[in-house]
C-alpha cells in the first residue's frame, strides 16, 4: 500500500510538471503553431512570469533573511495577473523592433531576451536575490488546506501509515487540480481564439505573409498581438511553476528546460493543434522522466547520463522533423488555408 501511495504521489508530481509544460506548449503553439513566430527564447517569458508572481506574492524578505525589493504577500490571483502583465510587456518591447523583419531576426532576438533576462536575474540581486533565488514562495491556499488536513489527521489518530501519507500530501493533489483547471481554461480560450476571425488571420499570416498583407490585414499588429498573448500564457506557466516549486533561481530557467523541451513537445505533439501541444507536453515529459530511471542501469557517470538524456531529446526533435513533421496530432486539414 505504501508503494501505491508512493506511485500516486509520483503521478501527482509528474502531472503538475507536465501540466505546467502544457501551458508553455500552448503559449508556444500560439506563437509558432498558429502564427509562425520563431520564438526560441521561451525561457525568458517563463522566467519573467515566475519572478513577477513570486515577488508580488512572496513573503516580505525579512521573513527569509534576504534584502530585496518585493515580497508583498498578495493573493495568488494577483501574482498570476502580475506574471501575465510582466511577460506581456516584455513581449511587446521585443516585438516592436523585430516583428517587421524576417523570422531569423525574431529567433535571434528571442535568444537574446532570454539570455538577458537570465543575466539580470543573476546580477540584479536587489530585486531577484541573484543566484540564491527567491525562496519560501507561498503556494495558494496552502495554509487553509494544511489546517484542514492536519486537523483531520489529529482527529483520526488511528489511520494507517499509508492513509496518513495520503492525507498529508493532499495539497499536491489540490495543486494538480489547479494546474489542470488552468490548462483546460487556456485550452478552451485558445481554441475559441483560433476559430475566431483573429485566429484565421494569424494562420493566413503564417501561411503567406505577403498574401495576408495584400488582403488588407495589418500583419505587424496581428503578429504583435499573437506574440504578446502567447508570452502571457508563458507567464502563467511561470507563476504556476514558482508557486509549486516554492523556490526559483536563474538555474531553473536554463534554455534546456525553459525553451528546448517546450519546442520538442510542440513538434512531437503537433504544432498548430492545441490538443497536440498538451499531448506533446505529457508524452515528452513522460519520456524525459522515464529516461531518468535509466541512470542506474548505464555504465556511465551521472553527468554523462544527464548529457545522454539531453541528446535523446535532441534526437527526438530531429526524428519528429524528419519523419513526422506534423506531429502526433496534426493540425486538422480544414483549418489550413489552402496554398495557391
Amino acid at each position: 500500500m505504501e508503494q501505491l501511495v508512493g506511485v500516486l504521489n509520483y503521478i501527482v508530481f509528474f502531472g503538475i510538471s507536465a501540466g505546467i509544460y502544457a501551458v508553455l506548449a500552448l503559449g508556444l503553439n500560439l506563437h509558432w503553431g498558429m502564427t509562425g513566430l520563431f520564438n526560441i527564447g521561451v525561457a525568458g517569458f517563463y522566467a519573467v512570469g515566475a519572478y513577477a508572481s513570486a515577488l508580488v506574492c512572496g513573503l516580505p524578505p525579512s521573513a527569509w533573511d534576504a534584502r530585496i525589493v518585493g515580497g508583498f504577500d498578495l493573493p495568488f490571483v494577483v501574482g498570476l495577473l502580475a506574471a501575465v502583465v510582466a511577460s506581456g510587456v516584455l513581449a511587446l518591447l521585443l516585438g516592436i523592433p523585430t516583428l517587421r523583419l524576417r523570422a531569423d531576426y525574431l529567433g535571434i532576438a528571442t535568444i537574446g531576451i532570454a539570455e538577458t533576462v537570465r543575466l539580470m536575474l543573476k546580477n540584479e540581486a536587489w530585486l531577484t536575490n541573484g543566484v540564491w533565488g527567491l525562496q519560501q514562495i507561498p503556494s495558494p491556499l496552502y495554509e487553509a488546506i494544511h489546517r484542514l488536513t492536519s486537523g483531520y489527521l489529529r482527529a483520526h489518530p488511528d489511520l494507517r501509515p499509508w492513509q496518513q501519507a495520503l492525507v498529508s500530501r493532499a495539497y499536491n493533489g489540490f495543486y494538480l487540480l489547479l494546474v489542470i483547471v488552468i490548462v483546460v481554461i487556456l485550452y478552451r480560450v485558445l481554441r475559441r481564439l483560433s476559430r475566431s476571425p483573429w485566429g484565421r488571420a494569424l494562420r493566413a499570416i503564417r501561411e503567406d505573409e505577403v498574401a495576408a498583407a495584400m488582403t488588407g490585414k495589418n500583419v505587424f499588429a496581428f503578429k504583435l498581438q499573437a506574440l504578446v498573448v502567447g508570452a502571457m500564457v508563458m507567464g502563467i506557466a511561470g507563476a504556476l511553476y514558482a508557486h509549486s516549486a516554492r523556490f526559483i533561481s536563474p538555474a531553473s530557467f536554463e534554455p534546456l528546460y525553459g525553451t528546448f523541451l517546450v519546442w520538442v513537445m510542440l513538434m512531437v505533439g503537433g504544432s498548430g493543434n492545441h490538443k497536440g501541444a498538451i499531448l506533446g507536453a505529457v508524452v515528452v515529459w513522460g519520456i524525459w522522466a522515464a529516461t531518468d530511471f535509466l541512470t542506474g542501469y548505464l555504465p556511465f557517470t551521472a553527468t554523462q547520463v544527464a548529457a545522454l538524456r539531453v541528446l535523446a531529446i535532441a534526437l527526438l526533435l530531429e526524428t519528429a522533423i524528419l519523419w513526422r513533421p506534423k506531429g502526433i496530432l496534426p493540425e486538422s486539414r480544414g483549418k489550413r488555408p489552402s496554398h495557391s
Partner: peptide, 14 residues
C-alpha cells in the same frame, strides 16, 4: 532553423 537548434542541443550534450 528548428533542426539546427536541435543540432546545437545535441552537439552540446555530446
Amino acid at each position: 532553423m528548428i533542426a539546427s537548434v536541435g543540432v546545437a542541443l545535441g552537439l552540446r550534450s555530446l
